[in-house]
Computed example of a mutant assay.
Amino acid sequence: MNKRNGTDFFDQPIVEQARTLYLEGSFMVAIRYYGYKVNLYLLNGEYIEVFYNHKEDKIERIAPLDYTHSRMKFYADQIRISSVAS
């Protein structure tokens, strides 16, 4: 996914991943999921979730969207997501 200078997006440090999403990605929607605010971005045709922990005031994880996860129902209420998986 998103090779840049021979480096995979997910091999980059989390700070670089966040910067790339902010500058090059398209913000789609935000949901609340347990203790997180999860921002969904579209980057180069792939959906990516950013898990922000309010209590810690930090991004804890950036991961490709898992189309089989129960979080999908929260996204489906707000936007239409198409994938190769569907």
Rank of each mutant, 00 (worst) to 15 (best):
56 E>Q: 12
9 F>D: 01
7 T>A: 10
59 I>Q: 03
21 L>K: 03
1 M>I: 14
17 Q>K: 08
83 S>V: 10
48 I>H: 01
47 Y>E: 11
26 S>W: 08
65 L>E: 01
1 M>K: 13
6 G>K: 01
48 I>Y: 01
31 I>A: 00
31 I>R: 00
22 Y>A: 12
46 E>I: 04
28 M>D: 09
12 Q>H: 05
81 I>Y: 01
41 Y>C: 11
50 V>K: 10
16 E>P: 00
31 I>S: 00
85 A>N: 14
5 N>Q: 11
64 P>A: 13
85 A>M: 13
39 N>R: 07
56 E>K: 14
3 K>F: 15
73 K>A: 04
59 I>M: 02
52 Y>G: 02
6 G>P: 02
43 L>T: 09
16 E>A: 07
18 A>K: 11
37 K>R: 14
13 P>R: 02
5 N>K: 12
29 V>A: 10
44 N>M: 05
52 Y>A: 02
65 L>G: 02
32 R>I: 09
29 V>Y: 04
22 Y>R: 11
1 M>P: 07
85 A>E: 15
21 L>R: 02
54 H>Q: 10
10 F>T: 12
6 G>W: 02
28 M>R: 13
79 I>Y: 03
63 A>V: 15
73 K>V: 04
25 G>A: 07
44 N>K: 08
65 L>M: 09
70 S>M: 09
38 V>E: 02
39 N>Q: 08
6 G>R: 00
21 L>M: 06
76 A>V: 07
8 D>Y: 01
4 R>A: 09
66 D>G: 05
2 N>H: 06
38 V>A: 03
82 S>Y: 11
19 R>S: 12
53 N>G: 04
11 D>W: 04
6 G>Q: 03
33 Y>A: 05
82 S>R: 11
7 T>I: 15
54 H>I: 10
7 T>V: 15
14 I>E: 07
24 E>N: 15
47 Y>D: 09
60 E>N: 12
83 S>I: 09
51 F>Q: 05
61 R>P: 01
33 Y>Q: 08
77 D>C: 05
